[in-house]
């Protein structure tokens, strides 16, 4: 299936943002965390679309909204392979890949139930550790390290 056909599966947008190559199953979480559906923005989501690169992927389209790179990077840990396409008049105006910041704040719920960040009214803070192809995160408070698969919840 060509990219255009794939994108048409979830309807083309005239202008806005297409977040492509999102890990299958993560689209709804990303929409929630980036508050993409706020202020009546039109959001179209494709889930478990076939992908040559990833096997299956999710895709998010937000009409009439340009996602700033720093916002996209904020959730990059959920979708490290994501491509962001900024669309204007049905054409790609700008394209960039997300990059995982070295410090992720107020996003991840620490999987350690004994971590102070799960018991006090406070934010969470994680340092990212690159291990070859994979990325792990280390809690600033309890000092435990977790793989991406071990992160089960995120803060809205």
């Amino acid at each position: 299936m060509s990219t255009i056909e794939q994108q048409l599966q979830v309807s083309a947008i005239k202008s806005g943002t297409v977040i492509d190559h999102v890990r299958a199953g993560q689209a709804l979480t990303i929409v929630r965390l980036l508050n993409l559906a706020a202020q009546h923005k039109t959001v179209t989501i494709g889930m478990n679309l076939p992908s040559r690169k990833m096997g299956h992927k999710d895709l998010i389209k937000v009409a009439n909204y340009e996602l700033p790179p720093e916002e996209a990077n904020r959730v990059a840990i959920l979708a490290p392979d994501a491509d962001i396409n900024i669309i204007a008049n049905y054409k790609i105006k700008n394209k960039f890949k997300v990059s995982i910041p070295s410090l992720i704040e107020r996003l991840i719920v620490c999987p350690n139930p004994h971590c102070v960040s799960n018991h006090e009214p406070m934010g969470s803070k994680f340092a990212t550790l690159h291990r070859g192809e994979t990325v792990a995160v280390r809690c600033w408070y309890c000092e435990k390290t977790f793989t991406q698969d071990e992160i089960v919840d995120y803060r809205v």
Binding site: N112, H114, C115, V116, S117, H119, E120, M122, C139, W140, Y141, C142, E143, K144
Partner: peptide, 8 residues
Amino acid sequence: YLEGAARR
């Protein structure tokens, strides 16, 4: 008793 309490 909580981990990370001193850093907090």
